[in-house]
Amino acid sequence: MQSGLFELLSPNPPGWGGNLLRGLANSLLIAVGAFGLGNLIGIAGAWGKLYGGPIVRDLLETYTTVVRAVPELVLILLLYYAGTDLIGRLLEAFGYQRIDINGLVAGIGVLGVVQGAYSTEVLRGAILAVPQGQIEAARAFGMSPCLMLRRITLPAMLPFAIPGLANLWLIATKDTALLAIVGFNELTQETRQAAGATKAYFTFFIAAGVLYLAVSLVSNVFIGRIERWARRGMPAVAGGGR
């Protein structure tokens, strides 16, 4: 705490604010990437769990159970080291050059796989919540499965899925902090470095906390809007409002 608070947190080089903001940008980039990848896995996973064959279903069950039971930290270490090693070895086995997977891509991949397991469950629950009659009606009109997915299932399940997905987004923003353990330059790691270099641990950890909180609060505002949009035209759920 040798120098003033504002000098330390100033975004221009003698201050470390710029480092924190760069870290925040990296965190958000990873969160967006992981959330997107997670939802792609989730859509495929939910589809597989509901309509897939017995083997697909059991494999997906194993995936979601293991990911939801093992700490993210352990999964990140396993996937970060083993995953990239495995891809490298596979490429070599097929006669390609080993490629270098940078921290950003690895981080998105690892957190995406974790998010995918939760997303699978959220989307599966949401699809199941769509009244059966709507799907039967669509089928009775002779809709193709593709058209049915696009026009009926996806829009109808959205209101049920959004609270769960919103929660997953908030988890994604916070889970990026775990990548500090594998040395990726996201917000928590940048904070740790700034704190270590200046010895102003308290100041920097509080500052980072404010940034994370701001992300959560801003997200909540948007989530509220999206939820209202997705529920448009639906009858108000008793006691559902907050």
Binding site: Y96, I99, I101, N102, N185, G196
Partner: peptide, 25 residues
């Protein structure tokens, strides 16, 4: 594998630099 390579390869640097590891602390 080729497809995966193409996708991931887009993120990889084209040259072959020597990667010197250090602990960011």
């Amino acid at each position: 594998a080729a497809a995966a390579f193409a996708v991931v390869g887009a993120f990889a640097a084209s040259a072959e630099p020597v990667k010197v590891g250090f602990s960011p602390e």
